[in-house]
Structure formats: C-alpha cells, structure tokens
Design a protein around this nucleic acid. Structure first.
Lengths: 262, 262
DNA sequence: CCTGGTTTGTTTATGGCGTAAGGTGCTCGC
DNA sequence: GCGAGCACCTTACGCCATAAACAAACCAGG
C-alpha cells in the first residue's frame, strides 16, 4: 500500500527534516546513519522489506535502538524520502530551450525513480515538505517559468509531468521487481501467461478486437538497449512516445500564453 | 507499498478470473461473495485494513475459511481488481469528437479511482489480465483508433493518459485518506504545517523563490464545488488544467498522423 | 574522586499480519 | 451404513511496529 508518513509529532519531524545535516559523527547511532542504512535496505530489497528490524540489523543494533533517534517508522520514511530527493539535479541549462530541458528533467527523474523505486510508494498528499522536495519543484519551475506560462497553467503542467513520469517509472520498476521476485524473466512470464490465456479465453480476439490489435506487434529494439527485457522495452517505448505527446501539449500551452500574454 | 498480486498458481488465478460469474448461490461462502466482501472492506477502510481476518469477520467466518475458495490474498486482490474494473463505462459516444470522449473517459476514470482508491495500489506491471482490464483498454482504444493514430503512438497516448489520471486521482485519494485518518481537515493540517514552517525554515522564500511564487495564490473555488477542501481543490484544478494540456498533445499527434498518413 | 541525571541501548511483551497444519462434523455416492 | 470429500474450525509459526521497563555508559557538579 502507499505508505502514509508523518503522522507523528509534526514539529519534531519538520525539525529533523530542516536541520543542518551531520552533527555528532561519533561511534554511536545518529539520524543520518540510520537514514542512510534504511535507504540502502529499501533500494536493495524494496519497500516491503523495509522494517525497523532490517535497518537495525544492518547497523548491528536492535530494532528498538532506532527509536532513540527517530520517532517512528513514518518519520524515518519522511527523512529517507527527502534525503534521497537530494540526488536529483537542481539546475537544467536552457540553452536548447525549455523543451529540451524538460525532456532531460523527465529522463533524469525516471532514472532516479528506477534507482529508488520505493520513493514511488511514499504518499504524495500532504507532502513531506522537506527542503529537497522544494529543490525539485524549483528546478521544474525554473525550466517552465521563462516560457511565460501563468501560475495556474504552470501548476497543471508540473502536475501532469510529474504524474506521468512517476507512473511510467512505476510500471518499469514493478516489471523489474516482479522479475526479481519470481525469478522469471518477462519473456518467460509473458509466454506462460499467453498459453494459459488461450486455454481460458479462446475467444479473446473476438471479444476484444482493439486490444488484440494493439498488442499484435512487439515493441522494437532500440539501439544501445538490446538487452532490455520484453515488458520493460515496451514500457520504455511508451515513456518516450508519451513524453513527446505531453511536451507537445505544453508547447501548445506556451504558444497560447505567448499569444495571449503579449 | 504497491501490492504485488498473482504470484501463486497462475493457472488457477486465470481460471478464476475468466470463469462465468455466479455459480452456486447457496448459504455457504463462494468466490463471488468473498470478493464482494473484500471490496467493501477495501472501499471503506482502505488497502491497509484489508486483511483476511477482516474479510472473514465481515462474512461471519474465520480468516482461514476463505482459503477453501481463494488460493491466497494475492489472487483475491487480482479478483477484486478485475471485478471492480467492471464498473467502468465501456463505450463512449464519438459524436462530439474524440477529444470530448477522451475527456469524459478521464473524468469517469478519476471518479472511479476515487471510489476505489485501493485500486491505485495494485501493481500495474505484469498486469492481472482479467476481462475487465481489457474492457477498459478496449474503451480507450475505441476512442483513439478512429483518429488514425498508429499503433505505437497510440500505445504511448494510452499510457500517458492512464498514468496521468492514476497519478492525479492518487493525490486526491491520499488527501482524503489523510483527512480521515488524522481527523484533521486539509486547512487545519496546512495551517499548522505553515506555522512550523516559518519556525524551521524562516529563509524559505529566499531559498526557493520560484516555489514560493507558485504557492502564493490559493486555488480558486469552482462553482458547484464550494465545499471541496483545500488541498483537494488544488488537486482538482491541476487535474483539469493538466488534462487539457495532455489533450492538446494528443491533438498535435493526431494532426501529425493525419498529415503524414493521408 | 564520587554521585546523580541524562542519553543510548537492551529485553520483553502486546496485538496485529498471512498462512501452514491438523482437526471436526456434515453431506453426498455407493 | 459407510467412507470420501468438503467446508470450516482452532492452533501455531514467524513476521511486523512499538509500548514499557530496565541496564549500562556518559557527563556535570560537588
């Protein structure tokens, strides 16, 4: 389920988020050490495997030892989330125009979400409001603001781009996780499924002709990505295509703003 | 976390998905009764509260009683997912053009996701492949195919629209859930947070000027939706704006396809 | 030096979870 | 009448987050 974080002591949580990092780097535990360990666990084994026990074990301590430094698992998640967002690039050159910059942002963000897929499972509502979340927003607005887009359209565009990238990355992330968990490649899974499919729904093509048509052709292999597995290749292709469609939409909004606004 | 379903006996799962519904409506349990009860639990209390014990209790049985009819919680989720997708409209009139139809689809889908927010937490990769999932896809393609879009662009468009709607609905759903869980309205939460914010990050406007600018103005109240809470109003506005941007992008793709394809 | 309070960690316990294993009684086909 | 199989039960295991109580290590003031 989407984990909902930050229900605990709001003040303590916010103070931890915005405090200067570092602090006492002694032999004992510290917030930073715990957050790093938790991120490693989540990166390697996924959100489902992120437990206080697992994090404690990685640090050679008990689960309860963490509670001295971190109020609860929910706040720990907030901290992990904001920490890891710091990896995102915060500036994009506009030399080649906003479209190239926004495309680069989307590709980087997709890469980021794939490196830390658990981030996609952190709730978006009532956001964490940490500094790095704002840094990410700042980067996006810096790309889009010079286009002359108004505040409300810009909000919509930012939302659409973020949702699209999150969703597209999520499909890829889940394909990878499934491959890891089942020990089955995409191809194996897909063809085993296809066999069952004919047994169980022999009239598929008649009942769902358009879906059948849509699935008829395999996704093409892009150069430099010859070893990308089946479902993921599909998802990557859809990401690239969908992103350009979305960018076209932004382009139209920009044109309208420039025509209307001066 | 996103729940990954369907790891069990693939054959049994598929057979359950594609079987004729109904069957013996005796006094005992049945797959349909269990699936309905599980959907009720998930709709009312959310994915986190969906446990075999909870479903059993709702039916006056033990948790283990369910296992006679359903192989595991994962397959139950598959069945819930496909069953509930059946609520979506499967046909959209094209009298007012594909754009109006696609907009209607998006609005309906958002409504659907808000009625069953747990659906957003079911994995998208290695899809469930139930009949109603294909029915949904069929409806979308039926809207877009007459535009003359090619297979690969159409895939990208479908993906982009679905991701966008899912993401936008997710934000709203999580805002609602948060309000319910914390017993705090969006306004209360937001203003309590804003107070902390000034204490903890007094230089916010200087560090993140663009984010500050973006947040300066409150979202307008749309007529007929005067009582929609704060964060949700914001999210709904972004949905409407973002959707039109996306539709503009699709429009550009359609124009290109018509120019190039004949 | 000692002493007392604070900090950092431990162990233990409670109530949840999914589900394996093994039991009980009812309903059929013969 | 009787054995088989079904529907359902209780129990148990190993996870989970975290509350509560306790121990050891540090530091300050005398």
């Amino acid at each position: 389920m989407a984990v909902f974080a930050g229900q605990g002591d709001a003040g303590r949580s916010m103070r931890l988020l915005w405090r200067a990092p570092g602090g006492g780097a002694g032999p004992g535990l510290s917030v930073d050490v715990i957050v790093d360990a938790a991120i490693e666990v989540a990166d390697r084994d996924g959100m489902a495997a992120l437990s206080m026990r697992a994090v404690g074990e990685r640090l050679g301590r008990s689960a309860m030892a963490l509670y001295t430094h971190v109020p609860s698992k929910a706040e720990l998640l907030d901290l992990m989330y904001d920490r890891v967002l710091g990896e995102l690039r915060s500036e994009y050159a506009l030399d080649d125009g906003w479209r190239a910059a926004l495309r680069a942002w989307a590709v980087d963000a997709r890469e980021f979400f794939l490196a830390h897929p658990w981030v996609l499972q952190v709730s978006q509502a009532r956001p964490v409001l940490g500094p790095n979340e704002f840094a990410m927003l700042e980067a996006l607005v810096a790309i889009l603001r010079p286009t002359g887009l108004g505040r409300s359209v810009l909000r919509g565009v930012v939302g659409a781009v973020v949702q699209f990238v999150r969703g597209a990355a999520g499909v890829i992330a889940e394909a990878r996780r499934a491959a890891g968990e089942t020990g089955m490649t995409d191809e194996e899974w897909w063809f085993s499924r296809a066999g069952l499919f004919e047994e169980v729904a022999p009239d598929f093509a008649a009942r769902f002709p358009l879906s059948a048509w849509l699935g008829e052709e395999e996704p093409p292999v892009v150069e430099g990505e010859e070893d990308v597995p089946y479902l993921e290749r599909d998802a990557v292709g859809n990401f690239v295509t969908g992103l350009e469609v979305l960018l076209d939409g932004v382009e139209a909004a920009v044109a309208r703003a420039r025509a209307g606004g001066g």
